[in-house]
Design a protein around this nucleic acid. Structure first.
Lengths: 339, 339
DNA sequence: ATTATTTATGAAAACGTTTTCAGTAATTAA
DNA sequence: TTAATTACTGAAAACGTTTTCATAAATAAT
């Protein structure tokens, strides 16, 4: 690795001058500058980011942390892509930490990131009262939360109106005549799970229907749990006529169980999922789903993070995107009216 | 941030001793050790990885780089999960770089990683003669290639027998009676695209059939290109009776086009894809596909990387996994025999 | 012509570790 | 009892930057 001193020698200046050419070119004489630039180019010099980070901490180490619950969920992949898009433009790199919905793992990653002296952090906290993340916010590290906010501490957050999205989905099912609508939730401690439940309940309330508690199931937001809970629901004495699934992976699990049991969608069981995928149209049947703009959310989060890195004292922002119902064919009118 | 000196003061020792307790506990007296450990705990001290990395370069900075072509492709997501699994066990973090099949972007990320003093790198090079990656290998950085090897330079590599996988897929179609089988390839410069083409051609040759060049299309390995090229194929005077798609995303694109045109699978057009997804069974129809064990590949790559970090001189390894055809219902017998 | 100001540069400290080297205290060998 | 090891520990250098401070040269002001 060529370093500052090599360039300095080649250009016949001190390392301070080389550093200045790199960071404050205007403070150095034009032809010295030229000589240094030349040396830099010919030696193909690139400053060590590690040394940079060690020396000048806070705000120009060009690396951020990314802490997400589940990289297997296409929604978060979209988020990552959005974040990466704007990171790349700024010459930033990201340390990716996938904590798989496991709080212990999240903690470990946060510790690592802390000791990596990152400039900032984008995180979807395990739950709203995540002390570890809250502590980092308080410590002054620029942080923006995505998908889920933090209660009790001020922090930027980018998310979707989950309650509204769920409400729309369930209302749609109700309008189609469904009355026994099950909700397969993700982990109950995740704020989005609760918000979506609230939307579900709101739809029932507004239609003067009562929710049957046995139709609400809690899982762990993964494919397997979607499969298993769907089995349980279908095994009920009076099974639901429609399913509202709490996220992407649950939806796919539910689909698998339904197909394995040879049930017809939507004739025998209707399905609406939270989270759309660009290939939802190719599912069997094309899936009706609530779409979150993951890519845009990621971009927005990254932009907010840069803003905060630049100006740590700016007031916190809460960006709420719309969740839009994409109607396809997985939830036609019910044949088994139960009202 | 509490640092070595704080712990040292609290324990009444020098920073050297604290460092030793951390790295070579056996060299320090038992009760001193205890005192230091106590101080570490009570101050909640964690060494700065940045300083560690700057000081002792090569092999214990606990961070690696991850350079992949397309995070949107579920195959790479599996790979990442596998890698992450073993990274996590070792307390390593990964800087994730998604170069989106763009060589310029790959180069920039590699430069960044270099100046981050990573311990090692797992990469799927843009193409076999990737000079940038080759240069890094030559420079002595521990590297393992995944999904695609490097020609002309010795490096560890983990991949799948692409030719065999493609051969199996196309043979299967031929056995079902198909003769006009199209191949939608990803970017031709990607080694896997070529290996899969070779498998395709081999299947034809072994069955004493000739390939019709107009049925081979090259795209950019993404969803859109899968859609577009499928349209082109279907618009042919005598369209193919079966499609072999070169990767995940192309398959989904093809599916979308086929559905939009209202064609029946497999009656009007059969489909076999390269890359399976765990939800392939929920597609319409359940997809027959060649499955790569992405998760295992990722784990293996990470293990190889650790081995090489420990012993940079060990001979390079080439790990070839099997690609297994998962037969589902997207490619029944053809009705339009053309032989 | 002298002083004050500006411009351009370098020397050296600092960031937080690891590691070498040397030295002291304790143990063993003679 | 003295010499030779051995076991611990600390001082200081090193990693590659950025930045402060001082200084020399050049310019402007008197």
């Amino acid at each position: 690795m060529t370093k500052l001193i090599d360039v300095a020698k080649a250009a016949g200046v001190s390392i301070a001058t080389v550093s200045r050419v790199l960071n404050n070119p205007e403070t150095v004489n034009a032809d010295t500058q030229q000589r240094v630039q030349q040396a830099i180019k010919s030696l193909n010099f690139r400053p060590s980011r590690v040394a940079q980070r060690l020396r000048s901490k806070g705000g120009n180490s060009k690396i951020i942390g990314l802490v997400l619950p589940d990289i297997q969920n296409p929604f978060y992949v979209d988020v990552i892509r959005g974040i990466e898009e704007v990171m790349y433009e700024h010459g930033y790199a990201a340390i990716m930490c996938n904590f798989a919905q496991d709080e212990k793992r999240e903690r470990l990653y946060l510790d690592i990131l802390k000791s990596e002296s990152i400039d900032g952090l984008i995180v979807a906290p395990v739950h709203g009262r995540d002390q570890k993340v809250a502590g980092l916010v308080l410590s002054g590290l620029p942080i923006v939360c995505i998908d889920r906010g933090l209660t009790g501490v001020e922090a930027d957050v980018v998310l979707v109106d989950n309650q509204q999205g769920a409400y729309d989905a369930v209302s749609h099912l109700i309008k189609l005549g469904h009355r026994r609508i099950a909700y397969i939730s993700g982990l109950p401690q995740i704020p989005t799970s609760r918000a979506r439940l609230a939307g579900y309940e709101m739809a029932f309330r507004e239609n003067e229907l009562v929710v049957d508690e046995e139709l609400i199931k809690y899982g762990d937001s993964k494919h397997e749990s979607g499969m298993k809970l769907t089995e349980e629901l279908l095994a009920l004495p009076t099974p639901p006529t429609a399913l509202f699934t709490g996220n992407n992976l649950i939806t796919l699990g539910a689909l698998e169980t339904i197909h394995r049991q040879g049930l017809k969608i939507p004739e025998e069981i209707a399905l609406v999922g939270f989270d759309d995928m660009y290939w939802s149209i190719s599912l069997n049947p094309p899936l009706t789903a609530v779409k979150q703009p993951g890519f845009e959310m990621g971009k927005r989060a990254a932009e907010l993070l840069f803003q905060r890195i630049k100006d740590p004292s700016r007031p916190t922002a809460k960006v709420v995107f719309d969740a839009k119902l994409q109607v396809r064919s997985s939830c036609g009118a019910t044949t088994i009216k139960t009202s």
